[in-house]
Design a protein around this nucleic acid. Structure first.
Lengths: 176, 176
DNA sequence: AGGGGACATGTACTTAGGAACATGAGGAGC
DNA sequence: GCTCCTCATGTTCCTAAGTACATGTCCCCT
């Protein structure tokens, strides 16, 4: 259901094609909600059938841009304001951490170094996005303001994970 | 695939039934990897067919406890050491944050207060687990040592999210 | 003795997600 | 004129996840 509202939310910014939405999903929403083009095209079909979006224009190469309808806008707003938030976070790195005791100290150490580097680099990436926004590169619309809030979450989450990986390296392996 | 290794990892601690594993998944691994009993029983069947686990004992009420085999143990270890980590985090609260600009200031404020409370309460829950572990309540086996590391991740993640929600409340709504 | 709750396993069905396959138009550079 | 890349949409198929249905046992409390 989240994909549906993700698409509606993006279309609330303005008309876009399935191709545009696919790219926006992989660039922007990818880390928190991956979606491949087959799912997106299928969902666009269902959204059209439900009257939440409609075709806005046809372009070259069979391009079809969609526009959100009044009903569609109302649907996202209801979702945001009334639907219960699903708080489950599906995070493989944390699932793995429950089983660290099955790794040799060397394997674990290597793993944690790599993880720390990955999380730190992600944190830096989001940090630089945040700085560009704060310098005004993306303008000051409400939409980009929300993007700034989302980016801040990315910075904080990845910094927390990087810090965790670093801390985990200092935990001595237990001797049973 | 993660469910498979999650089950193997839990069975590496000792024999357990499908029912035991279902409860452990919802109590311990639930927040990072939800799994319902139908998936678990089905996967246990597949793991048995693949020779990675075997029936350890039969108990009352049709209870069947499984034991991990040498092959199974080798399979988890290979996964941990060699399989690439999937870093995608599917997190609805962050997906929603991209669309905060579609909410009224009142709705957003309410939402962020509730989210902050939720994340803070989760952080406290994991914090108290951590303290119990540090007091020695769960012993000092390598297994519980890993649990301690996983719990620390929970504390840090939820604290980061609570801090984020609090910070987000201070971001003034943009006037376009 | 009876009832309720936790224990225990499974099937059936639906939806979500992801990989592979299939096709073709338009534009830039050689 | 040809080639290659990006744009662009879609189908097919398989696996993962989740909901609902179905069934029965053991134990504790009243």
């Amino acid at each position: 259901m989240s994909l549906r509202y993700g698409l509606l939310g993006l279309l609330a910014e303005g008309p876009a094609s399935g191709y545009d939405l696919t790219r926006r999903f992989e660039e922007v929403l990818g880390p928190v909600w991956p979606a491949q083009h087959p799912k997106i095209y299928a969902e666009l079909g269902r959204l059209t059938a439900d009257g939440l979006i409609e075709v806005d224009s046809y372009g070259p190469r069979g391009r079809k841009a969609y526009r959100i309808t009044e009903d569609g806008l109302a649907a996202v707003r209801t979702w945001l304001a009334e639907d219960e938030v699903d708080h489950t976070m599906r995070l493989e790195p944390l699932l793995r951490s429950f089983f660290f005791w099955l790794m040799t100290p060397e394997q674990l150490s290597d793993h944690l170094v790599r993880e720390q580097e990955f999380f730190a680099s992600m944190a830096r990436r989001y940090q630089s996005y945040a700085e560009r926004k704060d310098r005004g590169e993306f303008g000051h619309s409400p939409r980009t303001q929300s993007m700034r809030v989302a980016i801040e979450a990315g910075v904080r989450m990845y910094e927390a994970l990087a810090g965790w990986a670093e801390w985990a390296r200092t935990v001595p392996p237990a001797k049973p």
